[in-house]
Design a protein around this nucleic acid. Structure first.
Lengths: 121, 121, 121, 121
DNA sequence: GTGGTCTAGACCACC
DNA sequence: GTGGTCTAGACCACA
């Protein structure tokens, strides 16, 4: 089984997002080993170098750590790091852009409500 | 004065967004001429080819029209075209992704309220 | 002419050191464009991907900047960034290790003097 | 208790440095037995293969000797061997690089003095 | 077995 | 022309 990728974002970043989600939902808890570069590459159906790029990226963000010759592990405080990183991105970049666009389109705050309730499950 | 660009989105698309906003806020009303490729390039501080790409893009979306030898003009129904295009994009692509992310970060619908009121002015 | 590389350090890091030195000695002053990835690869006699790695590394350290489709440029405050980075490395990692070793070998502070005077030119 | 390792140098070499220091400071005097591969691996919290590599390395430098079935022993002239080896390394490789870097950073010979006195104890 | 580096070469978006 | 991404595959050091 190989993952499906959008064409609008580079694969290695989509995989990073995917890994991050799996850390947040408990599939890869803090301190645990994540799949090896080669294994992950096989699973995702991409080149090992692509995964290496993903892992490098996450390592730089201090979300995963590398133990030489053993593999990559989820950092103990990975969740904090992720939330901090994503929230910053959300409030600094995405939300203002979102609001700007909604104003332009005449969409009001209240108009969003039904879309949120749909996901309340 | 040259425009500021983010590195996460291509310049010609950022300029397109910019033009579209100026059409929506009345700076470039329907039927009016917009700046020539060269002039716009100079204003923005970018390569004329980049502007050309922006204008081509907007022309394909039927938001602007080209009168050979004279220049580019805002289409009579530009506003409708823009709203139709952007709304579709918003509800189909952006909103679901937004909600997914907010759930992951534990941000609630109500948390957005203050950000909207801030822009009510 | 291709650069000479040691075997103890990866090529892309040796090239990074090389570039940094050229920024410090004025060959690549702040704000100036540095050789394109391909050009530099040809000069150094290595694969373009290797240079790309080097440049990515320097970009992350905010020593060089990227202007889309145009090339890489030395950051305005590159010198400060470099000195800050290298000094930190020097006093935190290298110097203590150096002193520890000198003590073990019975080399005294004064023994270093002649080696420094040799480079006074 | 497991040893702390830097990521910039291979573990087996860091352990070698550690052993060498303990020979110089008298913890492991010439002729004495050093901990077995397994014991050392347990103490350090690493894979026995890693220790084996360390011991092989030191054996090749004639700093330790292997008596089959008994264990590894500090060579009678270990101290001389170490000093000879380290001094050569120091003056040939490390010192020139050190000086080059200090010049680039504008650090002078005299600036080092306080750091040495601090360790005089 | 693990990751890290490097090459060669392709294809793409962008300026 | 510029950089960015991806693949395929080799070789290495390390655990």
């Amino acid at each position: 089984m190989s993952m499906e990728f959008k064409n609008t974002k580079s694969i290695y970043l989509q995989i990073a997002d995917n890994m991050v989600e799996r850390m947040m939902d408990g599939t890869h808890p803090p301190g645990e080993k994540i799949p090896s570069v080669r294994e992950c590459a096989a699973t995702m159906g991409v080149n090992p170098n692509t995964i290496l790029r993903t892992y490098n990226d996450l390592q730089m963000k201090q979300i995963i750590e590398n133990r030489r010759g053993i593999g990559y592990f989820v950092a103990p405080d990975a969740r904090d790091k992720i939330i901090q990183w994503k929230k910053e991105e959300f409030f600094k970049n995405e939300l203002p852009e979102l609001i700007r666009q909604m104003i332009m389109l005449g969409i009001k705050y209240e108009d969003l409500k039904p879309y949120f309730e749909q996901y309340k499950s």
